[in-house]
């Protein structure tokens, strides 16, 4: 067994190498369900909104299936770079619930969610969190239940009733977003 190669920071000078046009929009290329917008701002430990951080989004389709080919109708992957005001926006559909660890004898289901990876200047490794939805039943999600109850709300985006969900992410300090070990 070989140790994974060491991570290094993304650094500040990368936008031109990464972003493909419209990559924050997971709905492009077809109708897969009602489109939603997930938006928020990224903050650091002093409450400064942080620009030029790379966010990567990974989710299942509406039936809870993850895409397994490059030409799947719904690919489930998006990227965006935070704007000068720290904001990020993804356009997507609601994912369905996905199994927890079916192969290992668990019958539990994870509530609809997206995995979110964040890279940026000042981050030596990726930090990973999740986004859940306030209008779903999150009460029995075995992953949410790993998060201390008082902090769970920091993972749950609130809807405005017309398809826009909002969740701010705080990397450090007061009101810090829960992040998962990899």
């Amino acid at each position: 067994m070989t140790k994974p190669t060491a991570s290094q920071t993304l650094g500040p000078f990368y936008n031109y190498a990464f972003l493909r046009p419209g990559e924050h929009d997971l709905t492009k290329g077809g109708e897969h369900g009602p489109a939603i917008t997930v938006t928020g701002k990224l903050y650091d430990g002093e409450g400064n909104a942080r620009r030029d951080f790379l966010m990567e989004w990974w989710q299942a389709d509406a039936s809870g299936q993850y895409a397994t080919t490059a030409n799947a109708p719904f690919r489930g992957f998006g990227r965006c770079i935070t704007q000068p005001d720290g904001s990020f926006t993804f356009r997507t559909i609601k994912p369905g619930p996905v199994p927890f660890n079916a192969g290992q004898g668990s019958n539990a289901w994870q509530a609809p969610h997206a995995a979110l990876g964040i890279f940026g200047p000042g981050l030596m490794r990726r930090i990973v969190t999740r986004i859940y939805f306030a209008d779903e039943d999150n009460s029995a999600c075995p992953v949410l239940s790993l998060v201390p109850e008082a902090r769970r709300g920091k993972l749950i985006a609130k809807g405005d009733g017309s398809g826009t969900y909002t969740l701010d992410i705080r990397m450090n300090g007061e009101g810090e977003t829960p992040f998962f070990a990899e």
Binding site: V98, A102, Q110, V143, L146, V147, M171, A181, E182
Partner: peptide, 16 residues
């Protein structure tokens, strides 16, 4: 300012 101060939460690998 960007490193989480709280411990990272252990997560068994799921299909996600």
């Amino acid at each position: 300012l960007t490193a989480p101060a709280e411990p990272l939460i252990a997560l068994p690998r799921t299909v996600t």
